[in-house]
């Protein structure tokens, strides 16, 4: 097993399933035999604010949060949030972006504009950028709440430490029986885009 620690950063908006997604990653990597830590900040973030979750795994993990410039993959559930946390990504790091736009209050009020070129800014700095229409794929999978699982499907392609079956077995345990098929489908659709 490799000694180095892999750092992931998930970013999004309250209610998008960022925390659930990071829990699933941890469980998958735990099953794959890694030491795992994750960290997030709850509380006020529930009310439509930014939500981030660090996930780190390796042979031995000390800090549950990565330092700036040390994250291997940034998984952004909302386009604008990608920019907010881009400085955490290491040079040559990978970005997965859900192209959904959720307008912050100042944009709603017409005081500021939603950046039209968010993806271009990211592409300008990083070459491994994957843009996913996760909402659309979740809808296709039969559950619009499965956005976070679509994102995990895409992410899974870049984490060879765990097989699709590893992911699917954790997803199968995470949801009630009724919700499992749509979420497994969402995972597959996400993985196919990567």
């Amino acid at each position: 097993m490799k000694d180095s620690v892999t750092s992931l950063l998930l970013a999004g908006v309250g209610g998008q399933g960022v925390l659930l997604a990071s829990d699933i990653i941890c469980k998958v990597m735990m099953k794959a035999g890694f030491d795992v830590k994750k960290s997030e900040v709850h509380g006020m973030a529930q009310r439509g604010g930014c939500v981030t979750s660090h996930v780190r795994y390796g042979r031995k993990v000390y800090s549950p949060i990565a330092k700036e410039g040390d994250v291997n993959v940034l998984i952004s559930f909302e386009k604008l949030e990608t920019l907010r946390y881009l400085n955490f990504l290491k040079a040559g790091g990978r970005v997965i972006i859900n192209e959904e736009e959720i307008l912050p209050p100042s944009v709603n009020l017409g005081e500021t504009a939603y950046p039209a070129d968010a993806v271009d800014i990211v592409r300008h700095q990083f070459k491994d950028v994957l843009v996913v229409n996760a909402l659309d794929l979740a809808r296709k999978a039969g559950n619009i709440r499965a956005v976070s699982i679509v994102m995990l499907g895409a992410l899974s392609k870049y984490l060879p430490e765990a097989s699709p079956d590893d992911w699917k077995s954790v997803i199968g345990e995470e949801f009630s029986e009724k919700l499992v098929p749509a979420n497994l489908k969402a995972f597959d659709l996400g993985r196919e885009t990567a």
């Binding site: 908006v13 309250g14 006020m44 973030a45 529930q46 009310r47 439509g48 604010g49 930014c50 800090s63 949060i65 990565a66 330092k67 700036e68 410039g69 040390d70 604008l80 949030e81 920019l83 907010r84 946390y85 881009l86 400085n87 912050p104 209050p105 100042s106 944009v107 500021t112 504009a113 939603y114 950046p115 800014i121």
Partner: peptide
């Protein structure tokens, strides 16, 4: 965070990149 500890002891600044000016997203009444 690990970066703060590293900077303190190594006494060197990592030259943090400030994120681009983008609209903030404070928590709000639902």
């Amino acid at each position: 965070d690990p970066g703060v500890v590293e900077e303190g002891i190594k006494a060197h600044k990592r030259g943090r990149k400030s994120p681009p000016a983008i609209p903030s997203r404070p928590p709000n009444l639902c």
